[in-house]
Nucleic acid binder design. Structure first.
Length: 439
DNA sequence: TGAAATGTTGGGGCG
DNA sequence: ACGCCCCAACATTTC
């Protein structure tokens, strides 16, 4: 009987591509035949609220493409629907695994999951190697001179720009040297959407193309929700169908404003890595004393785009209709929920997490805490967006608003849910109370 | 990556 | 010509 061959396993997670993939390149350089693995994680999928969650459609479509690409190389992609622990047990029982590779993930759930898998594999004598791939400067590489993490963006960005080197933002050459080889085999079939209990989304999924003209005009156009002035690539960065380095290379020297947004992305990854409790509680503890009104009917009207504030409703309807919302409008609706309606930012964070195709936990939590005023380097609490002013400034012709609220000029459009000056003053009072210590 | 309130300035109408 | 008032425009402070 032939002795089974030592193999390497590459665990795909949020890096669903073959090119410019750091840990995958390491795996292919190991000299061992590489088996590609993806786990449809029950811990995650079972908690999704919507059976037509567009991200599951996207995920399965992408896995299908990845699988085809590997089949063209006389290999395959092993896709298992289970918990990561059980999936790895199955892989190590079937194959003689000597090495395991993956790219690091900085979210609290992923950190805990990976810690468990590392222990499990090491106890079986399997060596684990990880790499930095998801960010340009991964958490831990941009620190204050005293070694502590930055909590304010501006000095972080300054240090980020000082520290970054060409190898941090240049994509890897598409052909690793040595070329490496994939394990020659054929897997059982891949689970379908139906197998997982999901149905196809009705939403249109964005492409991963980088438009150079959008980058070139980014600084001037990014705040206009009626215009296609932003990259809309978040979904692809989240699943790794677009390499962050490919995007950075396109933006470097073209749009400093856009690069700044990539720094915000790294910044929030670092914040979540060093302060994982911020998914649950305010970065600034005093803000956990805010007495939210948390009116469920008002929350529902916010969710459905029925607040009677045109810019807010346009944004919330855009989110439900497309799985995406313009960033300027994200700030407006977040300010409105937390300040005008005095609803806990976690409610809004959860709604965005459920509906945004480009949902990224670090950016979502960071952004919501920023808007609520309770985050690191946040907007001061007294900075209350006026939805009418924001519309006047950024949608002066009302093009965006009319696109999403065709009934704007009819009687069917609701009256404002709250009066702006009244709501503003109540928000200021409520925040002030929480911060002054009285209750 | 704000908006409102308050303060200052300067031009024009008018007695 | 001058002082006074009004108010828009801009600047500063406050929330």
């Amino acid at each position: 009987m032939k002795r089974p061959e030592d193999i390497a396993v590459f665990w795909f997670r949020r890096d669903l591509r073959l090119h410019d993939n750091r840990a995958l390149t390491l795996a292919l350089q190991s000299g061992l035949p590489v088996l590609g693995l993806f786990v449809l994680d029950r811990n995650i999928l079972d908690r999704l609220e919507d059976r037509d969650d567009a991200r599951v459609t996207f995920l399965l479509r992408t896995l299908g493409e990845l699988r085809q690409a590997l089949q063209a190389l006389n290999s395959d992609l092993l896709v298992l629907h289970s918990t990561p622990d059980a999936a790895w047990d199955r892989v190590t029982q079937k194959h003689q695994v000597a090495l395991a590779f993956w790219n690091r993930d900085y979210e609290p759930y992923a950190v805990q999951r990976d810690r468990g898998i590392v222990a499990r594999l090491q106890s079986q004598g399997i060596q684990v190697q990880t790499a930095a791939d998801h960010t340009l400067m991964e958490p831990g590489t941009v620190l204050k001179p005293d070694g502590n993490p930055y909590t304010v963006f501006t000095p972080y960005a300054k240090m980020w720009r000082q520290k970054i080197r060409e190898e941090d933002w240049k994509p890897l050459s598409s052909r690793p040297s040595p070329p490496g080889r994939w394990l020659a085999w054929s897997s059982e079939s891949m689970p379908t959407l139906e197998d997982l209990g999901f149905v196809p989304t009705r939403l249109t999924l964005p492409e991963s193309r980088i438009h150079r003209d959008i980058l070139a005009h980014y600084a001037d156009q990014r705040d206009l929700p009626a215009v296609q002035g932003t990259s809309r690539l978040g979904l692809h960065l989240r699943f790794g169908t677009l390499s962050i380095r490919t995007l950075a290379q396109a933006a470097m020297g073209v749009s400093d404003t856009f690069v700044n947004e990539l720094i915000w992305r790294d910044f929030y990854q670092s914040i979540l890595w060093y302060f994982p409790h911020t998914t649950e509680s305010a970065f600034k503890p005093a803000y956990d004393r805010i007495v939210w009104r948390n009116n469920p009917e008002e929350f529902e009207r916010w969710c459905q785009g029925q607040t009677g504030y045109p810019l807010v409703d346009a944004g919330m309807r855009e989110l439900l209709s497309t799985g995406w919302m313009h960033n300027r409008v994200r700030m407006v609706v977040a300010s409105f929920l937390t300040k005008h309606l005095l609803i806990d930012w976690r409610w809004g964070e959860a709604w965005f997490a459920r509906h945004l195709l480009d949902f990224e936990q670090a950016s979502n939590v960071g952004g919501w805490q920023w808007a609520a005023g309770c985050g690191n380097d946040a907007a001061p609490y007294f900075r209350v967006f006026n939805p009418y002013e924001q519309a006047r400034k950024f949608d002066p012709q009302g093009v965006y608003i009319r696109r999403w609220i065709p009934e704007i000029d009819t009687l069917t459009y609701p009256q404002p849910i709250v009066d702006h000056p009244t709501a503003r003053n109540l928000a200021l009072e409520t925040y002030k109370k929480a911060l002054s210590g009285e209750l």
